[in-house]
Amino acid sequence: MEYYLQLFVNGLVVGSIYSLVALGFVIIYKATKVVNFAQGEMVMVGAYVCFGLTVQLGLPFLVSFFMTLAFSVILGLSVERLVLRPLIGEPIISVIMVTVGLSTVLKSVVQMLWGTSIRVYPQILPAEPVWIAGVPVAPVYIAAFVLAALLFTVFSLFFKYSRIGIAMRATALDQQAAQSMGIGVKNIFALSWCIAAIVSSIGGIILGNINGINAQLGHLGLKVFPAVILGGLDSLLGAALGGLIIGVLENVFDGAMQQLFSLAGFKEVAAYIVLVVILMIKPYGLFGTEEIERV
């Protein structure tokens, strides 16, 4: 039982990172209807930039943290301006493939600058575990979870109450109507890429503190799809819950498969099997907007 409890807690932590990445994905999808296959690579770039500033340049962690966020803003803006804006109005496949191309470019830039070996962040939080419900949990895990929850609260409030947040929701609902009300839709697009880049970078930094980072981190981006499909592609709450559920399911399934059938590496596909099942029975997820079409 304790084995499964441990898996559950690990799943929650991994899941909270999935939720963060999914949050970035959903913000972009909601506002611009772009499916971003480069989300995982944005996480990776953020993690490596923070690593470079902290370890290679020797800056204090907090300074490099905020510098990374500033860098993410620039990254998000330039990606939106240079890559996505020329493709407004193009078919879905072109938009998907441009983000796929972008992801390979980002990945190869990271590989050229930092190589492919695992890089470890300096220890920021104490290593001694905290005991929660009889399970040892590393403080960094708790920090990750709390930070993720905090970000979600902040963004929910932002979208609900701030002027810009409301403008973003209006754009998501109906671009033409939003434009005729004087909302700069292009600015909203740029802003959503910025926010997504910031959130991804934070996710990357947290991951770096937990596991260390390597050039394969971008695969995380593919794990986002089960999470967002489960939650509903255009729902923030869905992204949060979807990420957590996928994280937990993945860990528990993996553990169960290992214990019951001694099947290794089931973690890689568990989420996608869940994904296929959801697509079959409830394709718009838990909270997504259903599109109804009739002939």
Binding site: V100, S103, K107, S108, M112
Partner: peptide, 12 residues
């Protein structure tokens, strides 16, 4: 490292 990146760049 560059090969994949150039491929992606050409695609974009």
């Amino acid at each position: 490292a560059m090969r994949e990146g150039i491929f992606g760049l050409i695609l974009v």
